[in-house]
Simulated assay, not measured.
Amino acid sequence: MSERLIVMGSLNMDLSVTVPRLPQPGETMPGADVVRAPGGKGANQAIAAARLGADVKMIGLLGADAFGDELRARLVAERVDDRGVSTVAGVTSGLALIVVQDDGENTITLSPGANRHVDARCLARLTAPGAIRSGDTVLLQLEVPVDTVLAAARAAREAGALTVLNAAPLPTAPLPAELLRTVDVLVVNETEATGLLPPAQKTAPTHDIIGDLPAGDQWLTHAERLRSLGPGTVVITLGASGAVAAGQTQQVRVPAFDVEAVDTVGAGDAFSAQLALDLGRREPLPRALRRACAAGALATTRRGAQDALPTRAEVAHLLEAVHAG
């Protein structure tokens, strides 16, 4: 059972503003003061895993700018091993522009910056002898080039590591079929789940009745369809309706936790980190999925991405409180 995670992915500076509602195209919407905070799906998931108790190594790139210095300092402060993170001259660090609605819904515009240069030179840190050990967990996302993600997944499989892909954000071009065949666990939300399916299978379930189970069954069908593309386990997050998972021997449906959401920005990253950590420990899928839902729910109760990520103790407290209730 491993608590050693290797995260290859993006590092961004997040600039966010809260508005009464998300603006329509062409509309100007007054908002609150801009908040600057370290982010990026790779860094978010690395820091989330560290707070949840994992030994985490981060692999990625930063620009030679003040944002890059700040992003590295946050990794170090959160006890993430940053020796796999390099600084690239002549490019900016990644930047995310986030607009958050009062109820927590958000839109994100991403400028990749240094993240688009994550290539074979970065990958060498992952594929060096002994860099990945059998029993490690490698956690990947799609804010760096897909070809590099595929190469990382190959390396992880060859080393005998558990490979978890959070397929977000979904690129406009289809994902390589080999990537889905190479990862052990695929994590997607409703939109991503539908987007990954072949055109003939893209009919989305009715989300608003999932609490009454029929739509949940349909999302499980979606998960099984995605499993047919190669991953051993497929997990679909359903926001306020929880999550479903299809594994090799079972299907699992977990309801959401009842919390007061103020910002959903880091929820998926907390979910993915907790899930990867628990599956790396060889926890049963139902337990791992429930704990991941708890971590994701807690992340919605505070504003920001990394600042909102919960600790292991906070996840345990929520699970105990729900059980006691």
Score class of each variant (00 low, 15 high):
Val185His: 05
Pro214Trp: 01
Asp184Arg: 10
Val146Ala: 06
Asp217Thr: 13
Trp219Lys: 00
Val185Ala: 07
Ala245Cys: 08
Thr194Arg: 08
His222Asn: 14
Leu170Pro: 03
Leu213Pro: 11
Pro169Gly: 10
Gly230Arg: 05
Ala246Gly: 05
Ala215Glu: 05
Thr182Gly: 06
Ala173Lys: 15
Ala204Ser: 14
Glu192Lys: 07
Ala243Glu: 04
Thr191Phe: 09
Ile236Ser: 01
Gly216Ile: 05
Ser228Ile: 08
Ile236Phe: 03
Thr172Leu: 15
Arg157Gln: 15
Ala155Leu: 04
Val188Pro: 00
Ala161Phe: 06
Thr221Leu: 04
Thr163Trp: 02
Ala240Phe: 00
Leu162Ala: 10
Pro214Gly: 10
Gln218Met: 10
Pro145Lys: 01
His222Arg: 15
Val149Arg: 00
Arg181Phe: 08
Val144Glu: 03
Gly247Glu: 02
Thr203Val: 14
Lys202His: 13
Asn166Ala: 08
Thr249Gln: 13
Gly216Gln: 13
Val187Glu: 05
Asp147Lys: 02
Asp147Thr: 09
Pro171Lys: 06
Gly232Gln: 15
Asp217Pro: 01
Leu179Gly: 12
Ala152Asn: 04
Leu165Thr: 12
Arg227Gly: 06
Ala200Ile: 08
Thr194Pro: 06
Val235Cys: 05
Pro231Ala: 11
Gly216Pro: 02
Gln248Asn: 09
Gly160Ala: 15
Ala193Gln: 05
Pro176Arg: 04
Pro199Gly: 10
Ala245Met: 04
Thr172Asp: 15
Ile209Thr: 14
Ile209Met: 12
Pro145Met: 03
Ser228Asp: 14
Ala167Asn: 02
Thr163Asp: 04
Leu165Ala: 11
Glu190Tyr: 03
Leu150Pro: 01
Thr148Trp: 01
Thr194Asp: 09
Asp208Pro: 01
Leu175Trp: 10
Gly230Thr: 10
Val188Phe: 00
Thr191Arg: 14
Ala168Ile: 07
Ala155Tyr: 00
Ala243Phe: 00
Glu178Thr: 15
Leu179Ile: 11
Leu213Arg: 12
Asn189Val: 08
Leu229Phe: 06
Val146Arg: 06
Thr203Ser: 15
Thr194Met: 13
Ser241Ile: 00
Gln248Tyr: 05
Pro174Trp: 09
Ala193Glu: 06
Gln248Phe: 05
Ala153Met: 08
Leu170Ala: 06
Ser228Glu: 15
Val234Cys: 00
Arg154Gly: 04
Leu229Cys: 08
Val187Gln: 09
Val235Gln: 01
Ala193Asp: 05
Gln248Pro: 15
His222Tyr: 07
Ala204Trp: 01
Ala151Met: 03
Gly230Trp: 03
Leu197Lys: 10
Trp219Val: 03
Leu175Phe: 13
Ala243Pro: 02
Glu190His: 13
Pro214Lys: 05
Ile209Gly: 12
Gly195Phe: 09
Leu226Ala: 08
Ile209Pro: 02
Ile236Trp: 01
Thr249Ser: 12
Leu213Lys: 09
Pro169Gln: 12
Thr203Asn: 14
Ala246Ser: 14
Val244Ser: 02
Pro205Asn: 09
Leu180Asp: 11
Asp217Gln: 13
Leu220Gly: 03
Ala151Cys: 05
Thr249Ala: 11
Leu165Lys: 11
Val164His: 02
Asn166Thr: 06
